[in-house]
Structures are given as structure tokens and as C-alpha cells.
Design a protein around this nucleic acid. Sequence first.
DNA 1: TAGATTGTTAATCGATTAACAATC
DNA 2: TAGATTGTTAATCGATTAACAATC
Lengths: 212, 212
Amino acid sequence: MANKNISMAVIRRLPKYYRYLADLLARDINRISSKELSEIIGFTASQIRQDLNNFGGFGQQGYGYNVEALHKEIGKILGLDKKYKTVLIGAGNLGQALLNYAGFRNAGFDIGAVFDANPKMIGLKIRDYEILDSDDIEKYVLENNVDIAILCIPKNGAQEVADKLVGVGVKGIWNFAPIDLEVPSDVIVESVNLTESLFTLSYLMKERDDEE
Amino acid sequence: MANKNISMAVIRRLPKYYRYLADLLARDINRISSKELSEIIGFTASQIRQDLNNFGGFGQQGYGYNVEALHKEIGKILGLDKKYKTVLIGAGNLGQALLNYAGFRNAGFDIGAVFDANPKMIGLKIRDYEILDSDDIEKYVLENNVDIAILCIPKNGAQEVADKLVGVGVKGIWNFAPIDLEVPSDVIVESVNLTESLFTLSYLMKERDDEE
DNA sequence: TAGATTGTTAATCGATTAACAATC
DNA sequence: TAGATTGTTAATCGATTAACAATC
């Protein structure tokens, strides 16, 4: 066991630090204080120092932080140097959008195969991937030691697919199905729920209109 | 001004209540206590009662909550009965995936037009929509009183497009570009950042592996 | 009525912010 | 050295949980 329980609030700020530091690097800025970073990222300087100190003392009194070094450190903290064998399940529009998404390679997620349950899709090629039959997922996962599955399937059936995946050793799921998957505690689920995001926008728009 | 400042934490739980109540309705369950709901949704009964009481006393002592009535109330709180004129900007894979996404109609977001900057895309038809030239967005927004824009374009240029949209009166943006848009305080931005979600998954996987 | 469960106040917990000694 | 800024402790703020009187 490595880390003293880092809270989710902190974890979800890390990608933001990483992104803003990359922007600074691109602008050839190689030194930044928590105060300056605070002004561009919108967190308090105090919070920034607290957050970073969860993982180590990356700064230097009187100087601030070295942008390149800090960026690299946060990349390591995020585990972007690790490689994970990944499969994509569901080759509909959203699945295809994700397949075209360059972010995977940067994050070390190597998509090995794409599956779909629709007979009309099986055998088609998208982006170098021949779409495989969903019935063969378990076999593939076992033979290829797949770590992570990206789930782009409808709500119905998502839990069953997740159960199957967990049964053959998948340890992480990036879930786009609008459902809260139930998995054992050693399996990680990170969900992107478009409906919840849209409903939140709806709420905020209504609240905005009420304030007039 | 209507509501005494509801915290974001509460707001982001509302869609989840709405979804679980819909599930209960579909199973013909028409009465539920905070304790029972707690067991299926995973929040404490106390939190559920606190959350709901921000908006009114929807329950009845000794009885619990009427599922159908509560579902309807939360729908109203979320503003799902309101209609918003919407445009989709960026007709790439993700844009197309969203266009096929049925959720919009339920949430009252009526997509009136689809835009893209790529000359090869302009004029093509997807799902009854002829893709229009991004150069004509401002004109369209003004003429049609568009309320909300869905932004499915790359990071570069996203801020400029947002500026344009705000300039012609757009009041809400559902943002899929991996950037923190800067907008006036009366404009709502709800972002879905896939990279941040993926990086969070990466962190949690690494943390999980460290614990072995 | 007795039992159940809410609405709401009070207590606790955790996260954010402020402050400042340490130190580069 | 003097000035700047971190790392870290203490204070504050806000969100969650517990408790219970009100009441259906």
C-alpha cells in the first residue's frame, strides 16, 4: 500500500494540473509559483500547495515549481507511464468516436480489439480494427490478459457484460452506459454519464432563468 | 431569484434520484422510504431526506415518498419540462454520436441545426440534418433565438467559437472540448472532459496495482 | 392508537483556506 | 543578506450524518 488515502476531490484536480502545466510548457514557461498557477487555473494557491504536497515536496521555497519537472511528476502520479491492455465494447457512434480519440495512446491505454453484438457490424473494419463478435469477448480477454474494458453499450445488458468481464479478470471499466455498475471492490469503474451531465445543464439553465 | 443556493453536490445527485425513481416506476413500485431508497441508490437515508428537503417536503411521515409524484417533482426541479433551442457544433464522430442520442428529447433540448467547419462535411446529411457551414453560426443563432450550443470541436478554436456564441446571445454550452471555457457569469457551461475522466481511471488503476 | 418515517436541528466529519515558520 | 515562496499546521467553512420531535 503506497498512498495515504488521497480524496477523490484531489484526484479529480490532478488531470487539470497536468493539462495546465502542459499548456505552460508549450508556451516555454519553465517556472511557476502556486500564486501564478492559482490565477490561471482558478484554484487557490493554498489548495494547489496542499494538493501537490499530498504526493511530495515538488517546489522550492523562494522559487516556486519547475514546470517541466512538475508536469512529469503529475504524469507519473496519474500513472500515464503505465500500459494497459484494453478492449472496446460497442462499436456504435460513441464507440467509434472513442476509437478515433487520440488520448488513449498518451494515457497508455492500448486498444487491442473492438467488439459488437450486432451481426451487421461484426466483420466490418473501422480504423484498422475488424469488429469482433461480442460472444467471443471472454475468450479474448483470457487469452490476451486484458486489463481494462471500455463499455459503450446500451443500459440494458451492461451489467451482464460487466459481470462477464469481471469474471475473466478485467480490473477496470470505463463505463459510458447510463447505469451504476456493480462490481467487486477491487475492480475500478470510472463512468461518464452523458444523461446526468445534460440534466445538470438543464437544472442550471432553469435556475439561471429563474434569477431574472 | 428562487432557490436558496443549492450546492453543486446536491445538484449532481438529482439526476441519479431521477433515474432510480424511473427504474422503480418501471418495476411498478409506487411507494418508497428514504431507507429503502438508500439501499438501492447508495446514499444515506439522511442525505436523501436532506437533499429532497432543499426543494420541498415531498414525503409523508409514516409513509415515505410516492414514487411517481417524486419522480415528476424532480423532473420539474431539473427543468426537464422546459424547452431549449439548441445547435450542435462539430459533426465529427462524437457530434454524430450525440445527434443519435435520444436523451435530448427527454430533456427538452431540441437540436435545430448542425454545423461543421470542414468543407468536406458541409452539405452532407446526417439524421435529417444537413450540415451547415460554421461561418453561418452567428446568423443562425440570431435568427432562431438559440439558447444552447453543444460544442464538439477540438480544443483549438473552441474558445473563439464560444466567444462568438456568447456574443450572439447563447446562454448555455454543453462543452466536449478539453478546455475550460471562459464565459460571462450569466452563461452556463457544463463540460464533459473525456481526458480528465480517462486520467482519473489511470490514477485509480495505478493506485489499485500499488495496493497489492 | 401504535408504528413508521418524515422534516429538521444538532453533531460530526472532511475539505478548503489562512497563516506563518522554514528555507531557498 | 533580503525577498520570495514553499511546506505545513491551525482555523474556518461546508457537507454529511445522527438524532429525534412532529405527525401521518
